[in-house]
């Protein structure tokens, strides 16, 4: 079998979505792809396709109208994936905290792995955040590829009733996770 492990951590493709921001952090992400702070030398390409990307960059305090598109993009990305919140508005709501059309921060809604501060965050901080996201991506890859029997030690009775119960519980867990 062709081995994907050594290739997967070295050139992540990013997907960028603007969930209601003032465009300051988006201009700084565009400046990361320009000649002075070039992240294309790490192999990073900005695609618009969720099925082909590893890192999800979100900017802006999440407004009520853009929540539906955010969930669709998050569920269409394949595992393993990393979510990065860029800017003070995305981490905790920023200046827009407690306004009437805004959720206070991205982690009220989907699980987040890396928080980058700043208003607007400079390209140097975004590159630091991307390097940390690569380390988290590598540890997630190792966890998925553990052998199956060692991982499922706890529920060993493989009878029909137990398998049906665990299948029903799997459906409930994902809906709770998305609404958090």
């Amino acid at each position: 079998m062709f081995d994907f492990k050594p290739i997967r951590k070295k050139s992540p493709w990013i997907l960028h979505y603007n969930a209601g921001s003032c465009n300051g952090c988006d201009i700084e992400i565009l400046a990361c792809l320009s000649p002075k702070y070039d992240i294309e030398r790490f192999g990073v390409i900005n695609t618009g396709n969720p099925k082909q990307s590893d890192v999800f960059l979100v900017t802006g305090p999440v407004t009520f109208r853009s929540r539906e598109r955010l969930i669709e993009l998050y569920t269409q990305m394949p595992e393993p994936k990393v979510v990065m919140a860029v800017g003070s508005c995305t981490c905790t709501g920023g200046v827009f905290r407690d306004m009437y059309n805004v959720e206070n921060g991205l982690d009220r809604y989907i699980p987040v792995d890396v928080y980058v501060p700043g208003c607007a965050s400079s390209p140097e901080l975004i590159i630091d955040g991307l390097v940390k996201a690569l380390e988290i991506l590598e540890s997630k890859t190792k966890e998925i590829e553990k052998p199956f029997k060692l991982f499922r030690e706890a529920s060993l009775d493989n009878t029909i009733v137990n398998r049906r119960n665990s299948a029903l519980k799997v459906g409930e867990d994902t809906t709770d996770d998305e609404k958090n």
Partner: peptide, 14 residues
């Protein structure tokens, strides 16, 4: 209208 955050109301109350 995807970016509406409610700034004018907050300028008079908060």
């Amino acid at each position: 209208g995807f970016v509406h955050r409610g700034i004018e109301k907050a300028c008079t109350t908060k």
